[in-house]
Deep mutational scan, measured.
Amino acid sequence: EPREEEAEKYIKRANGDYDKAQELAKKDGNEEIAEAIKEYKKR
């Protein structure tokens, strides 16, 4: 799923820090991806 791939990219950029990844996504205006990262975190 493209959303998950995007989320993974942010998580990698944030060195595995989900909260930081979420912030990066929000900064880029990717609210949807920020949500996907939140879902990811719950797994």
Rank of each mutant, 00 (worst) to 15 (best):
23 E>K: 06
38 K>Q: 11
30 N>L: 13
7 A>T: 08
10 Y>W: 05
38 K>R: 13
33 I>T: 07
7 A>L: 14
41 K>W: 08
25 A>E: 00
27 K>E: 14
25 A>D: 01
8 E>Q: 11
39 E>V: 07
35 E>Q: 10
41 K>M: 09
14 A>N: 02
32 E>T: 08
3 R>G: 13
32 E>L: 12
2 P>R: 13
2 P>Y: 15
4 E>Y: 14
7 A>W: 10
31 E>W: 15
31 E>R: 07
26 K>D: 05
12 K>G: 06
4 E>Q: 11
3 R>K: 12
23 E>P: 00
31 E>V: 12
12 K>L: 11
29 G>C: 00
14 A>Q: 02
42 K>L: 13
38 K>T: 06
37 I>W: 00
3 R>N: 13
36 A>K: 10
5 E>N: 09
14 A>D: 01
5 E>G: 08
19 D>S: 06
38 K>F: 10
36 A>H: 07
14 A>M: 03
29 G>Q: 05
26 K>R: 13
16 G>R: 03
25 A>M: 00
8 E>D: 07
19 D>K: 07
34 A>T: 05
40 Y>L: 15
17 D>V: 03
32 E>V: 09
43 R>N: 13
4 E>R: 08
10 Y>P: 01
3 R>S: 13
6 E>D: 09
12 K>W: 10
22 Q>T: 09
27 K>S: 12
6 E>N: 07
3 R>P: 12
31 E>F: 15
11 I>T: 01
24 L>P: 00
37 I>Y: 01
29 G>M: 05
26 K>Q: 12
24 L>S: 05
40 Y>N: 04
5 E>A: 11
29 G>R: 04
43 R>D: 10
13 R>T: 08
33 I>K: 01
21 A>L: 01
29 G>Y: 04
26 K>W: 11
24 L>I: 06
34 A>I: 14
33 I>H: 02
36 A>I: 14
34 A>H: 04
29 G>A: 04
21 A>P: 01
39 E>T: 07
6 E>T: 11
24 L>C: 02
35 E>W: 07
14 A>E: 03
17 D>H: 04
43 R>C: 07
41 K>T: 05
8 E>V: 13
16 G>S: 03
8 E>N: 07
